[in-house]
Amino acid sequence: MRAPDGPDVMAGEVLLSVANVSLSFGGVKAISGVSFDIRKGEIRAIIGPNGAGKTSMLNVINGFYQPQEGVITFKGKARAKMRPHDAADGGIARTFQNVALFRGMTALDNIMAGRTLKMHKNLFWQLLRHGPAMVEEVEHRHRVEEIIDFLKIQEIRRTPVARLPYGLQKRVELGRALAMEPDLLLLDEPMAGMNIEEKEDMSRFILDVNEHYGTTIALIEHDMGVVMDLSDRVVVLDHGIKIADGTPAEVMKNQAVIDAYLGVAH
């Protein structure tokens, strides 16, 4: 896996910045003029009530949606338009709110698939599956086994993921994202639908990924306890507008945030 502090962006500097981004679907404005940044090495939470535009924001960052306005700068490079596979190329990995694994494949194959971009042996060698192609396959299998050990999913390697319980599916999905050795890992509700033990496990994995591999993480989460414990900085969205940005403690005290979550008397 990648050592902390890649050569391109130093720890603590801005890895990704979102400036004045707006996204609308027809007449519906999902995001209006949101700006924030994600620093290298931090855990950044994006929170907000339902329909606040959190997932849309992630979709903008990794290229599923093209914003109508605004600039996204990743590793110092501003971009106008980007396809998801370009984002993957650039080092952005992602997990989904509702698990998006390759259901017909085993856990091992799912995580191996995460290394697609790192594998380069051409069709000729793939057809033979000997020599360089096999060397490459084994080399990447080593890396994948490290991730499997890290996530403690050794015993389900060979199980088709469709048969796994939800919590383990989430873990395999995290493993697939980690296999990409991303610079920026986007987690869309990694703990949705989990019980307290599973949440604790997942939180531990997220912290470990951040510490051990130095991966910058942006996560959406509804469990405030988890958000406050994990994240270094929090950005709060409501109705597509940024209403607060700061450390968890600052955000918790913010009146706009409290109003957004609890509602205000009209």
Binding site: P84, A88, A100, F102, A113, T116, M180
Partner: peptide, 25 residues
Amino acid sequence: NLVHGRIGRMWMAVRDMDLAAELIG
């Protein structure tokens, strides 16, 4: 050989979940 290697996994990824496939590059 093909379906047991990288290309096979790419194909199955596209079959099972094309959005996620695009996301892993």
